[in-house]
Simulated scan of single mutants.
Amino acid sequence: TAQPTPEPTVQPTPEPTPQPEKVETTADVDGTQVKVSADSKVLPDAELKVSSVSDEVKNKADQAVKNKLDPEAEILEILDIKAVDKTTNQEKQPEGGTVSVEMSLNEKYKDNGDIKIVHFDDSKDEVNVVDNAVADKDNKTVSFEASHFSYYAAVKVPKASVSVSGVNLKWDSLKLYPGDSTTLQATVSPENATNKNVLWTSSDDSIVSVDTDGKITAHKEGTATITVTTEDGNHFDTTLIEVKNQEPKAASVSNQTYNDGGSGDGNVIKKLAATVTGTNPDTSIRQAALMNGDVPAWMIPSIIGLFAGGGILIGVIALIKRKRSE
C-alpha cells in the first residue's frame, strides 16, 4: 500500500534585525567636545569616527584659511570626521542626507570675531565656508550639517570694520553761569560703527573747560566753542557756550495791608512797601510806589526820607492817614 507523501514543514521567515534610528558618536578632540549624528538611513551599517589631524594637515589648512578668508583668520579647532562601513571597513559618505555635527569649543570660543565652519580639501589646498553653520556665543558652541566627510575646522574671522559716517551734538548752543557744569551728548553714526571713540576740545579753557567724557564747566563770562571729533574719519560737531554773570537780584517787596479801623476802600492802602531791600534803596522805593499805584508820585520824596531816617512805621501811618483825608 502506497504511503501518503508528508506535507513539507514550513519554516518561519526570520524577522529582520531592527536597525537603530540614529548613528552617532561623541569624542573629545584636544579639549573640544564633538557630537556627530545621522539618520541610519543616511549611513546604513556604518560607524562614525572623529579624530584630530596631523600637524601637516593643520598647517596646510591654516594657510588656506588665511589665503581664502582673511589674513587674520585663526583656526580654533580642526577635525577629521568620517564614517566606516562595518562589513567592509571602507570609508563611506552619507547617502541622500546630511550628518549633524556640534562642536563645544568652551574656552577656545572667541566672541570678538565671527565664528565660521570651513571644509578643507587637502588634495587641492582649498577651503569652502559651510553656509548652514550656527554659532552660539552664549553656550560657546557651533553646529552645522555636513553633506560629506572630510576635514572640518572652526575658524575665527575678525569682524568686518564699520566706518563712522558722522557725529552729532544734542545742543547747538547753551547759556551757563560761572560754576555751572553739564555733560554734552554726542551721537556717533552709524550705531554699529566699529570705532566710536571721540575727542573733546574747548576753544578757550579759561571760559569753559571740557573733560574726556564731554563734561563742561563754566569759569568766567565770555563765549567758547566746544568741539567733538571722531577718532575714525575726523568727523566733528560743535556747541557754542555763552557764560554770563548772574544779574543782581531785584528788590524784594513784602506786600502789606493796613486798616485803621474805618470802613471803605479809602481806609486801606494795599501793597505798600513796608520792607525794601536792594543795592539802591532810592530806586527800589520809587519803583515800589509807582508799581502799586496806591501812593501818589508827589509823596515819593517823603517816603524816601522816612525810610532813610528810620521812621518807617510812623511814616507809613502818616501817609495812610493823609491819603484817607484827601
Rank of each mutant, 00 (worst) to 15 (best):
G305I: 08
T238R: 09
N259M: 08
Q19L: 14
I320T: 01
V208M: 01
D114P: 00
F307A: 13
M291V: 15
Q90R: 13
A224Q: 02
V157C: 02
D114W: 03
G311I: 06
E74P: 04
V130M: 12
S173H: 11
I241E: 01
V57F: 11
K68S: 14
I216A: 00
M103S: 08
I226T: 02
L79D: 00
T201V: 13
A297P: 06
K140C: 01
E47H: 06
K249T: 14
T279E: 15
L43A: 04
D111M: 06
L174R: 09
V167T: 02
D172A: 12
T194D: 06
N89V: 01
E91T: 14
S302L: 10
K270L: 09
N280T: 13
T257G: 02
L272M: 15
T238V: 12
D260V: 02
E326M: 08
V295M: 11
E326I: 02
T201P: 02
S202V: 02
V118D: 02
E191M: 04
P190N: 10
S54E: 13
K116I: 09
E21C: 05
E107M: 08
S123T: 13
V101E: 03
I241P: 01
S40L: 11
Q33D: 12
G166H: 03
A46W: 01
P190I: 03
K220R: 15
V10D: 05
L169A: 00
G266I: 00
I320Q: 01
D237G: 06
D30H: 08
S254I: 14
K321W: 04
G214K: 06
V162P: 04
V210Q: 01
K244G: 04
E107H: 12
V50D: 00
A61P: 05
G97K: 11
D55C: 08
T182A: 08
T9W: 03
K116W: 05
D28A: 09
P44A: 14
K175F: 06
T217P: 00
N112I: 08
T25P: 03
G278A: 06
A224C: 05
T141H: 09
I285E: 02
K92Y: 03
V23T: 08
D121M: 07
I226V: 15
V228E: 02
P301Y: 03
M103T: 00
D260F: 11
N197W: 04
L199P: 00
V276M: 05
D232W: 03
N292T: 12
E7I: 07
A186W: 00
Q33H: 13
D138L: 12
G309L: 07
K60G: 15
K196M: 06
D294M: 09
L199M: 11
A218F: 03
R324I: 08
T9K: 12
S284H: 04
G310W: 07
D265I: 04
D265V: 10
T87K: 15
W298Q: 11
Q90P: 04
K244V: 12
T13W: 04
N245R: 10
I226P: 01
V316N: 09
A38S: 13
D28V: 07
D237T: 03
K175L: 07
V10K: 14
L169T: 01
E107A: 12
L176R: 01
G261S: 06
G31N: 05
K220A: 11
D80R: 07
T212W: 09
D39L: 12
V295C: 08
